[in-house]
């Protein structure tokens, strides 16, 4: 199926999504990668507040290249999600509803996704120039000192992703590879 979705997405709509669906996302997403996740996680461990509210948000595992003059952002493709796995269940339990990245996720993440009715989507890795065109505004909202790893509030329009793990825990990487495996 192909969907055009506006963020925030209701639980009912999220539950409809299945591994393999193509989605064009519009609305606000937040970029955060290794260093920002580590800091947020450390805050949670110390019972300190997070720099942004993560309830109902979509996270994009991405650290852009610098924007040229008259551009919103530089190249802006996904990074490998598994490096965020350690920190992810805690953020899902706080209400994160969508994650955009690339690559496999851990069992712990999958369990936390099922528990919280959340979806994991892949953007095409190595398509950072193309994906930057779907980002219409970018603003650093936390951890500015981290440079490319700062948390950015991004407004996207028809940002192309594919559902890899749906709310039920179905994993497209496992299903699709089995379909084309000829070993």
């Amino acid at each position: 199926m192909i969907y055009h979705l506006q963020i925030p997405v209701s639980d009912k709509e999220l539950a409809k999504l299945e591994a393999g669906d193509t989605i064009y996302l519009s609305g606000v997403i937040y970029s955060a990668r290794d260093a920002a996740h580590k800091r947020m996680y450390e805050n949670l461990e110390k019972n300190l507040p997070l720099p942004i509210s993560v309830d109902q948000i979509f996270l994009y595992y991405m650290g852009p290249s610098p924007a040229r003059e008259n551009k919103v952002i530089g190249s802006a493709g996904p990074t490998t999600s598994s490096r965020m796995d350690k920190y992810t269940p805690a953020l899902l339990d706080l209400g994160v509803k969508g994650m955009i990245g690339k690559g496999k996720r851990s069992l712990d993440v999958k369990e936390a996704m099922k528990r919280n009715n959340a979806v994991y989507m892949a953007a095409v890795g190595g398509a950072g120039a193309l994906l930057s065109k779907a980002i219409i505004s970018s603003e650093v909202v936390a951890y500015e000192d981290l440079g490319a790893e700062a948390i950015r509030k991004l407004e996207v329009k028809d940002f192309p992703v594919i559902v890899v793990i749906d709310c039920k825990g179905n994993d497209l990487y496992e299903q699709a590879i089995a379909e084309y495996n000829k070993e």
Binding site: P64, V124, G128
Partner: peptide
């Protein structure tokens, strides 16, 4: 679909001088 996006990506990268991948 993925490969076509990657072809478009290469074109945009060259024409607009945006790195092919953000991980330079």
């Amino acid at each position: 679909q993925v490969l076509e996006q990657l072809q478009d990506n290469l074109k945009i990268a060259a024409e607009e001088m945006i790195p092919i991948c953000q991980d330079t």
